[in-house]
Nucleic acid binder design. Structure first.
Length: 1138
RNA sequence: GCCCGGGUGGUGGAAUUGGUAGACACGCAGGACUUAAAAUCCUGUGGCCUUACAGCUGUACGGGUUCGACUCCCGUCCCGGGUACCA
């Protein structure tokens, strides 16, 4: 009977399904083993041959562990929230849920055909409320926790509140010792805390919560209409879709992963994960230990007060500069204008005042200024970004003269890029809501049409923040009218208000140049080599310290750098640019005058946004100094400063006062000591890791379980979970630019409070899913104590290397958090991790001669001007094009003509990622159709080491298919039974079997599946040579094979007479006694080169072996005389040195 | 640039601790069976030289350590992945 894979595979797949063969349950008397695959995002394309690679490997491990008596958990599910389904919904209107379900159905069908032993009763889908209820639940836990820096653990926020209300807060206490708290929250006493408003308390607590809302610099992707996490951005474009990404300040939900930076780093050491992943995470966390050092500004360089403040607006339009020039071009008229403005502001009309108040309170998301001079006009209200002037007119505007005047004004304001909206007094007073709506809509449409303005934050000032209602609410509170403008109002104002007086003080403070710059350095030892201090262009001090002389140059530089997109900045890396500010600081030890520069190479987001530049020992500082001709001082001996900086952390200090003669290590220590002693800085640790943006302006994700009461974010009650994604009619953002969820109008908590309208990012659901599988149908808990205590953590986790710094960092973070809350017993999600390699596709190309419909074969293409086009690999088997099929393939190729090579059209070939658009996708279904699932499984494993990437090719698939057919024949099947001998096997047969058992066991334990398949083939070859037909040999062989070719093995097992599934069998045990060799054919080498071989007993001692070799006949052929030395390695080799 | 992998026949790859390089498979060549083909089976297959025996050479390249190196060390080149002015 022939091997009929179709029949066999159908039969057993049905059997496994009907008997629930792979259902797993807690069994306290059995050891557990948890095998997890990274679950797939069900895309519309379906599975290609690359997907199953990892699943096959993990399936083999699962089945093997089952045979070894382990209670195996091997679940599967779907990461079902995501952008593609939503993009499809936007284009077609089809609900993402439907798309997702269809895709899942197809995935399931394909997965089932490969014969996996997944326990489908535990299936999860991250997009289902039963699942995301618990994702939301974890979010609430994060919101209600803070990170205690002393215990290094997450703790309840209620405990913190209790401390605040009894002891107050002081940032120098050890539990708060983290970089940012100090700057964000001022110390307060318990009385002060208790006196604070609810809003103030909420604001303060947000600085502690692990899930928090803050103004953050985010990666904004306009094309996707959403923010992205750092790991979702590659080279300045979105990872999905490749759309440009820009930096933007936004009110944004974030998770405080940085609190866990140190634990995420140190716990890596104990993980059995690939070095590359661990290394990538180390770099991503980017810990650097160093020192902060304060440089005091030099006051004696005081220049006259600069006439105009530096505008903090970074312009983007071509009118901007003209606007500025014009605005200030005539000081005389300017001061006149100014005094008008001040008077107007002091005496606003009733309507002006009403509109001003309404705009401030209505969360428009835009910032307005009152009585702001532009050119020679003072409009009532101005929004600078986007540019809009709002005029509230009294009746006087109805006169003819005034109409003309208004027209002129419009022309001029338009020139400066402003649009104008006019309202009458009565309109404003009677229908204020409508007026505000008109203004908001106008601003939104202006904003969406204009090239996206770059909104770099400067000195913490927040402007024109996004579409989020809450955001604006909160921003309007801390953003006031134009600060710079008010400096001037003060000059003309006879009696400044208290508010104005305060601003005035700030202003004069900045002009007296009492400032200090704090830098962060990992090389405090090189402090005597400092030749300048460099600030990031966005550094808050830039505005304050720049001297009048350099003001315009600095302004220009700051503007130029703020205009650059993230991408431009990245591509310009290594180009030296910078600008002197005119300011100086003094060296903390020598008192030397050190110039302060600004340079793009200094990043505002890292450290303090300022560096002490030591050109002798930092390559970037070196290039900067060379370019601007600044001094380069050697302070560590060892390099050649004529050519490059000496950056190595070894050598002896020179030119360094009290550090002279020390080596770098000692000098670092001493310098830190001295710095701390003088109170000018302290040891500090910085991380590159940023907090993770957690809100997406998207529909197809978990709703964030937050509502707003009086603008204060609060979590919904746990008993109200899940917060179900509301149905909406369209999936686009709203007309005013809010996230799609804002379309759900009746969607309110307790019928009155607005919900948060952003949703969670794609990685939320995958950050804890390994726990849910342990108890996926539990309605009461995210996972029961019993389940999690039994299954603990993943023993073997398999997935793509692309998740190294995204998913794998987030899942570790959530695991540690849940561990801190004592909800789970393990602090890491997975003990062992392996990355499977990618299977690439081999694309085929045809070459169209430009401007014609003629196609030239690969070898002749250089004779023409051609364009390469992807062609579907199914119509070009072995890269020979089927020209008739090609003509039918696409309408425009109907009349194609071909220039052949010989009588064939040869296609070009290239290895690329497997993708639908490249027409190089190989579908596993086709392989299964032709060869069967077992052949596919064996072949994918036989292709090479699991971790290695390789192009798909079916060359060689016949090898493994043949193996199965030959193995089948060995079992001598006739009339539905194996005709095997019950005789006792020979020693040779036993040796073959036990050698194979040992090899298969060793290999699977080290995840080397390709060599296991070879071992099977060798075993089969040897058994065939021995003409073995012994049941005692072939039964264990079947068990060995069953994890790899399960259908095949099940069928043979039943033909051997067993009624139970082979999965219930025991893995055979190899016995040393069958493997012992008596003789070994020693290779005899002379000077390391093997010359001949001698058969000798393995029982012989070294000396006896040597004697045997030396007396052998053959030796004479290769050497004469006495050898210098003889090395005998028993059981290995003999080497003779002559 | 830096960090982590990797480079072995015509091809995929093997060599687990420094001990016979090229297992296993594909492909190719020759043969058996067959009227023929398919299927199956057998033999050969790194390169050079040779009728053969043998010999020489050979794991990206150059050097080193060692009785012995694909394996360890130093330098160079190339490929893949990560990261990107992180002070």
């Amino acid at each position: 009977m022939e091997y009929n894979f179709r029949e066999i595979e159908d039969k057993w797949q049905r059997y496994w399904r009907e008997n629930k063969s792979y259902k797993s349950e807690i069994a306290n008397d059995k050891k557990k083993y948890y095998v997890l695959d990274m679950f797939p995002y069900p895309s519309g394309v379906g599975l290609h041959v690359g997907h199953p690679l990892g699943y096959i490997a993990s399936d083999i491990v699962s089945r093997y562990k089952k045979l070894r008596g382990f209670n195996v958990l091997h679940p599967m599910g779907y990461d079902a929230f995501g952008l593609p389904a939503e993009q499809y919904a936007i284009q077609t209107g089809q609900h993402p849920k439907i798309t997702t379900e269809q895709n899942i159905a197809r995935y399931r069908e394909q997965l089932d055909r490969i014969g996996f032993c997944f326990d489908w009763s535990r299936e999860i889908r991250t997009c289902e409320p039963e699942y995301y209820k618990w994702t939301q639940w974890v979010f609430i836990k994060l919101f209600n926790s803070w990170f205690n820096c002393e215990t290094k653990k997450a703790e309840s926020i209620d405990e913190l509140i209790a401390v605040f209300s009894t002891k107050g807060f002081n940032c120098s206490e050890p539990q708060y010792l983290t970089g940012d708290i100090e700057k964000a929250v001022a110390p307060f006493s318990s009385d002060e805390w208790n006196a604070k408003s609810e809003m103030e308390k909420s604001d303060i607590l947000l600085n502690f919560r692990l899930a928090y809302l803050s103004n953050a610099m985010v990666n904004w992707c306009p094309a996707l209409g959403t923010v992205l996490a750092n790991d979702e951005v590659k080279d300045g474009v979105s990872e999905r879709g490749g759309f440009p990404v820009e930096k933007k300040i936004m009110k944004q939900w974030s998770l405080r992963i940085t609190a866990y930076a140190d634990r995420l780093l140190t716990d890596l050491d104990d993980l059995d994960w690939p070095d590359s992943v661990k290394e990538a995470q180390r770099n991503w966390i980017g810990k650097s230990e160093g020192t902060s050092i304060r440089f005091e500004g030099i006051v004696d360089d005081f220049n006259n007060e600069s006439e105009y403040p530096l505008s903090i607006n970074s312009g983007t339009s071509r009118n901007e500069k003209e606007f500025k020039d014009h605005r200030y071009s005539d000081p005389k008229s300017y001061s006149q204008l100014k005094s008008f403005a001040i008077q107007n502001k002091k005496n606003p009309t009733e309507a002006e005042n009403a509109l001003w108040e309404a705009l401030r309170n209505k969360n428009t998301g835009f910032k307005f200024r009152r009585q702001y001079p532009i050119s020679k006009y003072i409009p009532d209200l101005v929004c600078l970004d986007p540019k809009l002037v709002i005029e509230v007119d009294g009746e006087i505007h109805l006169s003819k003269d005034q109409k003309e005047n208004d027209a002129n004004k419009s022309v001029e304001l338009n020139f400066y890029g402003f649009e104008i909206l006019r309202f009458s007094n009565s309109q404003v007073l009677n229908d204020i809501d409508n007026v505000v709506l008109i203004i908001t809509n106008k601003l939104n449409s202006l904003k969406n049409n204009s090239p996206s303005p770059l909104e770099r934050g400067l000195g913490g000032e927040a402007r024109t923040l996004g579409e989020n209602k809450i955001t604006n609410d909160r921003i309007n509170q801390d953003s006031s009218e134009d600060v710079n403008y008010r400096h001037h109002t003060n000059m003309a104002s006879p009696q400044p208000s208290p508010e104005e007086r305060e601003l005035n003080e700030n202003y004069s403070k900045s002009n007296s140049k009492q400032f200090s710059i704090e830098v962060f350095t990992t090389r405090p030892d090189t402090i005597f080599g400092v030749s300048f201090v460099a600030l990031a262009p966005e550094h808050e001090l830039v505005n304050i310290i720049t001297s009048a002389e350099y003001r315009s140059a600095v302004q220009e530089y700051v503007n130029a750098s703020s205009k650059k997109s993230e991408r431009e900045r990245q591509t310009e890396v290594k180009k030296v640019s910078g600008q002197f500010t005119g300011a100086y600081v003094s060296h903390p030890f020598t008192g030397a005058k050190i110039p302060v520069w600004i340079g793009e190479y200094v990043l505002v987001g890292y450290g303090t946004g300022a560096v002490m530049a030591v050109p002798g020992h930092d390559q970037r500082d070196y290039l900067f100094a060379k370019h601007f001709n600044l001094p380069i001082q050697e302070v560590v001996r060892g390099g050649d400063l004529a050519h490059e900086a000496y950056v190595a952390k070894e050598g002896v200090l020179v030119n360094s006062d009290f550090l002279n003669g020390l080596d770098v290590k000692a000098a670092v220590k001493k310098a830190i000591g001295e710095i701390e002693k003088r109170g000018i800085g302290k040891g500090q640790v910085n991380y590159r890791l940023r907090d993770a943006a957690f809100g997406r302006q998207r529909y197809w994700g978990e709703p964030i379980p937050i509502f707003y009461e009086d603008g204060i974010p609060k979590t919904i009650s746990e008993s109200d979970l899940p917060l179900v994604l509301p149905e909406i009619d369209k999936f686009q953002p709203t007309e005013s630019g809010e996230p799609p969820l804002a379309r759900a109008e009746d969607w309110k908590y307790k019928g009155k409070f607005n919900y948060e309208t952003t949703t969670m990012p794609g990685w939320a659901g995958s950050s804890w899913y390994f726990l849910r599988y342990m108890d996926s149908n539990n309605e009461k808990e995210f996972v029961s104590k019993e389940a999690v205590n039994y299954w603990q953590q993943v023993d073997f986790y398999l997935g793509g290397a692309e998740h190294a710094t995204g998913h794998l960092l987030y899942v570790r973070f959530w695991t540690k958090f849940l561990f801190d809350l004592k909800l789970i017993p393990c602090k890491e999600p997975a003990k062992k991790l392996i990355n499977q390699g990618m299977i690439q596709g081999v694309s085929a190309f045809v070459y169209r001669i430009n401007g014609t419909n003629n196609f030239v074969s690969d070898g002749l293409k250089n004779q023409y001007e051609t364009t390469a086009l992807h062609v579907d690999i199914s119509i070009a088997p072995n890269h020979i094009l089927d020209t008739e099929k090609f003509k039918l393939w696409r309408e425009d190729f109907k009349n194609a003509e071909f220039i052949l090579e010989g009588d064939q059209y040869k296609c070009g070939a290239e290895v690329e990622k497997m993708s639908k658009s490249k027409y190089n996708v190989v579908n596993p279904d086709d392989i299964i159709e032709e060869y069967g699932a077992d052949t596919l499984r064996l072949y994918e494993m036989f292709l090479g080491p699991l971790e290695q990437s390789k192009p798909w090719s079916t060359q060689g698939i016949s090898g493994v298919h043949n193996f199965l057919r030959r193995a089948w024949r060995l079992f001598q099947i006739e009339n539905g039974a194996c005709k095997l001998s019950d005789e006792t096997p020979s020693a040779a047969e036993l040796k073959v079997l036990h050698k194979t058992i040992k090899k298969v066991e060793d290999d699977v334990e080290r995840f080397s599946f390709n060599t296991t398949i070879s071992a099977f083939m060798i075993c089969l070859n040897e058994l065939s040579d021995l003409k073995c037909n012994k049941r005692q040999i072939l039964e264990p062989f079947t068990i060995l094979l069953s994890p790899y070719a399960p259908h095949f093995a099940e069928e043979l097992w039943s033909l051997l007479g067993y009624k139970e599934s082979i999965t219930k069998a025991n893995f055979p045990i190899w016995k040393e006694e069958y493997l012992v060799e008596n003789e070994f054919e020693y290779p005899i080498s002379i000077n390391g080169k093997v010359k001949f071989k001698i058969n000798l007993s393995l029982q012989l001692s070294k000396e006896e072996v040597e004697k045997n070799v030396m007396s052998s006949e053959e030796l004479g052929k290769f050497m004469q005389g006495t050898p210098k030395k003889i090395i005998v390695v028993p059981g290995r080799i003999v080497n003779i040195v002559v």
